[in-house]
Write a protein that binds this DNA or RNA. Sequence first.
DNA 1: TCAATAGTGTCTTTCAGACACTATAAA
DNA 2: TTTATAGTGTCTGAAAGACACTATTGA
Lengths: 245, 245
Amino acid sequence: MTHYKSEQEFLSSYSIHDFDVPLVSVDMSIFSIIDDELQVLLVKRADYPEKGKWALPGGFIDLKQDSTLDDTAQRKLRDKTGVDTPYLEQVGTVGAMNRDPRGWSVTVAYMALIAADSVVLSKDSSSEDVKWVPVFQLAKLDKLAFDHNQIFEMCHERLKSKVQYTSLPVNLLSEEFTLTELQSTFEIILDTSVEKKSFRRRVLDADILEETGNMKTGSNRPAKLYRAKEQGKDHLFPRSIEGPR
Amino acid sequence: MTHYKSEQEFLSSYSIHDFDVPLVSVDMSIFSIIDDELQVLLVKRADYPEKGKWALPGGFIDLKQDSTLDDTAQRKLRDKTGVDTPYLEQVGTVGAMNRDPRGWSVTVAYMALIAADSVVLSKDSSSEDVKWVPVFQLAKLDKLAFDHNQIFEMCHERLKSKVQYTSLPVNLLSEEFTLTELQSTFEIILDTSVEKKSFRRRVLDADILEETGNMKTGSNRPAKLYRAKEQGKDHLFPRSIEGPR
DNA sequence: TCAATAGTGTCTTTCAGACACTATAAA
DNA sequence: TTTATAGTGTCTGAAAGACACTATTGA
């Protein structure tokens, strides 16, 4: 890909306006729990437009390579993180005349949940840098490229809302985990405390976990290790987690 | 728009493949309750591809006229039904190499809920006929154009699922309605009976309705008429409607 | 034995289902 | 007075919160 000297130069050579078709891309919020915080993966843009700004990873559909939209998302995720079989969910689509200087553009937002320990970060040609950013810092610090702050917010809202009534967070943990670790990821995402007994009743009664037979030891009572019965699926609870009264 | 003699002729003149950009369209499931049944609006395609087949109303983004995707959906809805301020929700986006013979194509699915009495059906140039079809008949009878059966199913699932824990169905009724009428629309969509007392408690406690002061009379005890406090919004209940035990 | 975390017993609270009951209109 | 529908009283049951309790390890 050619590198242009200025956004001006870049735009003047861009001719998508000539065809009555919008641009289409995929952008994703890749979430993970790192250092007991919910973090999201950002890339620094290597090209115009918005060169040098931090952005959600994403890009255009490869009409030859991708046979579905989900393939595009999967490919983008693999390129940045090396992770291949994550939890991947389409969140929504934003399209507008003026969200991209190249013209009418549509982007399909995805969110991915991955276990931090399974990741090997890597840059590709479209990004000069990659980093994890704690979600609570994002609102204050970074003004992302395009409307990515808004797209990220959609994904974050979806995540928080689904955590209230599904077992989604199992996808943020490595294969084996304790109930306390699982509870902790719920608490981190919901940013509230969850009552231990209710939590265990809820999760165990749902019959979505199975004991691995292993224990996690430390300088205290060992904890049973569990694994999700159906990888990648999320159970729907009949009622929401309500939090403290 | 030119009318072609065959799909072959049409396709050979189509050149979107030359640009590495997919087609983008909006398709919508417009729901209404008519004759005590949940029905969806279909149009008969006037042009290739899939000429003559029934399809969900939709079409391409008008890059000049529409400034957002929601505008496109709103415009399509207005064209077919004359309705201007409905409940409109984006359901999801499907994109694939082979879902449209013209090439890689992406469609954003919307669902709209409207009160039947507010509709004036009208055809536009892209459709030669328009009709309401009961949802339960659709599965059996019609093989729709493209992957519209699948897109419709996405919308129908979303509708049924949201009805379980939100007040969405108020958007299917005209401005004033009785609690019994509201209960009935829940029952029609969920295809199950709902217990009267629980239903009224739930709805009334949620404080989302207000009495209009009017009564609906008949040859029996008159019923209070209500109106949604916030038009177009849907309340989230803490628990789902569970249906009979 | 103590500190620390895992895991349980059990009471209360909230809200949905069941179902019998009362209320109010027209014919 | 009957019929039809609107609307209520109140019991039961399921699942969440509160919180004190016991259990099991290493140091």
